[in-house]
Design a protein around this nucleic acid. Structure first.
Lengths: 336, 336
DNA sequence: TTGAAAGCGGTACCAG
DNA sequence: CTGGTACCGCTTTCAA
């Protein structure tokens, strides 16, 4: 591994000069520049990251806490999310260090990475209402952006997808199809995104004078959706549509209905949310709502790097609109 | 951010002494040690990672190239893989830097990270027959372990799951159930793991005097499995079992068969490989082969850290046995 | 336009 | 057992 000294010697200049041309930080005569470049090339020179970090007090690394993979997870959204983060970060000149929050004190992991100067900022995903990590980072004044909102008052930067709007779109679609008895399957009451999707459902019905009387809750599993559908059908036989908070739950609901003689898409319709890969392969393919993943990731990195490099007080709150994807589960013509 | 100097001042000792107690590298009197620890605690001290890296020429970071998420990917294996890597790496005192190989020259990314001293080693996944990355790393003599084998001759460390053995188990199970006309759906001929699973199928049949005459190939998609099943049924109406190289393909095959009047698990049986979460939710649940993910990840980190810390010439090649998981797609009783 | 040298925060050798 | 200090590789100020 050649150092800046080797390059300087090879090019017959000082280390300062090499630094200038490598970083483009100072004007250097064309002739000298060429010589340095050639020497650097020849010696396969790359500035040592640690030395540079130490000197400039910047790691050029972003921290990202991997969400705990849920057993039976059928999505792959977070995988694409992580991939998108790394590619966009790379374009901005950053690497991503991923870490897993160990047991007890999640915040402790964040604190140590900050104290060690390991990272210049964090991307925080999987936020919950009163997110400890966000409270901590806000208090520390350490750069971060979250994917998803929380109930925390202090201003901080986030990028989120408007689940409220997503469900408004879903309900508008169902109303247009003539449905009036529309049920909803939500998550347990604890997540910001779950609750705002539900609110979108409630308000959309309310705005046309319909009531949201049939609501079930379920964990984000196929089994959960299955039994939620059972309860709805049993307790509210009048319903003709079930809007679900997620595709996974919707798939469970469709399964229950199909097994019990309903032709989903005709007798009764079902919608999901997320547009997971599987949603187009189930029978019938699922009407759902898709999140602008690439835009989310781009914004996340853009906001964070701006905060780090330009203006540490920069705060940006972005709400992106999701898109309704209509498939056979709401407009099924024939369901074999 | 307090430095070692601050701690030294606070404790009334030299920086050397602080370093000794923080790292436990030299004996220090109990009284001094206590004082230093207290000061460090009080000042919230954490050694600066860059400074330490620079001095010790070690990054305590491992590089991991994220596989490109395939559209329509239904698994989530690689997500759990990445999570497992991070947690095990953390236990060994390493962070994981993930990166995505940009377009043209994949190897270039590896080279630059090495030259910059960013990482102490690599975990290479998604290997192919003549993997450029592995050839490069072997030539460089840079520490790495791969998940998966290749055709490369030079010795290098890997951890892999024995797909050959997995298919032997599958076929043994099918033979036991009385099947004699067993087809196989493989991947296009290019992956080591695909080919060795296929060889397991061939040899298992061969060893009992049966021929492997019905083989189709398909990309790793549901659609691929669907049409592969169609071809098999059309060209080889005598078959009573289809062993697939992956769950995704198996799910496609099951779908074709179910749609065409077959009761999978009774009229005809199907097996997969990987035990993706979805495989237990399809109808009928899939008999498949599960990989010892946690053991894989543990070995990977263990071998790599050993190579980095103890003995750079250490080479270890581990082949782990997968486990057959029997579900209704081979022993279905009722397939409502 | 170029270079000498200080210093980022640690580690570890060597002396006491 | 404790401490002074050189040095890891780079950036950047200041002077020439």
């Amino acid at each position: 591994m050649n150092t800046i000294k080797d390059v300087a010697r090879e090019a017959g200049v000082s280390v300062a000069t090499v630094s200038y041309v490598v970083n483009g930080t100072k004007k250097v005569s064309a002739e000298v520049e060429a010589r340095v470049l050639e020497a650097a090339q020849k010696l396969n020179y790359r500035p040592n990251a640690a030395a540079r970090s130490l000197r400039k007090s910047e790691a050029r690394i972003l921290g990202y806490e991997l969400p705990l993979p849920e057993t039976g997870d059928i999505s792959s959204f977070m995988q694409r999310f992580a991939y998108g983060l790394t590619t966009h970060a790379a374009e901005a000149g950053y690497h991503i260090i991923s870490f897993a929050a160990v047991g007890e004190d999640v915040v402790q992991t964040y604190r140590q990475m900050i104290l060690a100067g390991r990272v210049d900022g964090f991307i925080v995903a999987g936020t919950n209402w009163h997110d400890d990590r966000i409270q901590f980072l806000v208090k520390q004044g350490f750069p971060f952006v979250s994917f998803g909102r929380t109930a925390i008052e202090n201003p901080y930067s986030y990028v989120d997808v408007d689940g409220y709007d997503g469900l408004q779109q879903v309900i508008a679609h169902l109303l247009e199809l003539g449905h009036e008895n529309i049920a909803f399957v939500g998550w347990p009451k604890d997540s910001f995104s779950g609750d705002s999707r539900e609110q979108g459902y409630i308000d959309a019905l309310d705005s046309v004078g319909l009531a949201a009387q049939a609501v079930e809750r379920s964990s984000n599993t196929i089994e959960g959706g299955y039994s939620a559908a059972r309860k709805l059908i049993t307790n509210h036989p009048e319903i003709t549509a079930i809007a679900c908070v997620s595709d996974v739950i919707a798939i469970g609901a469709v399964r229950y209905l199909s097994r019990h003689g309903y032709h989903v898409g005709q007798d009764i319709v079902v919608t999901g949310f997320d547009d997971i890969p599987l949603s187009q392969y189930v029978t019938p393919p699922l009407t759902t709502v898709t999140q602008p993943l690439d835009e989310v990731v781009f914004q996340l990195i853009d906001v964070l790097t701006h905060k780090i490099e330009e203006d540490s007080s920069y705060t940006s709150q972005t709400l992106l609109k999701p898109t309704l994807v209509i498939r056979d589960s709401t407009i099924g013509v024939s369901n074999l």
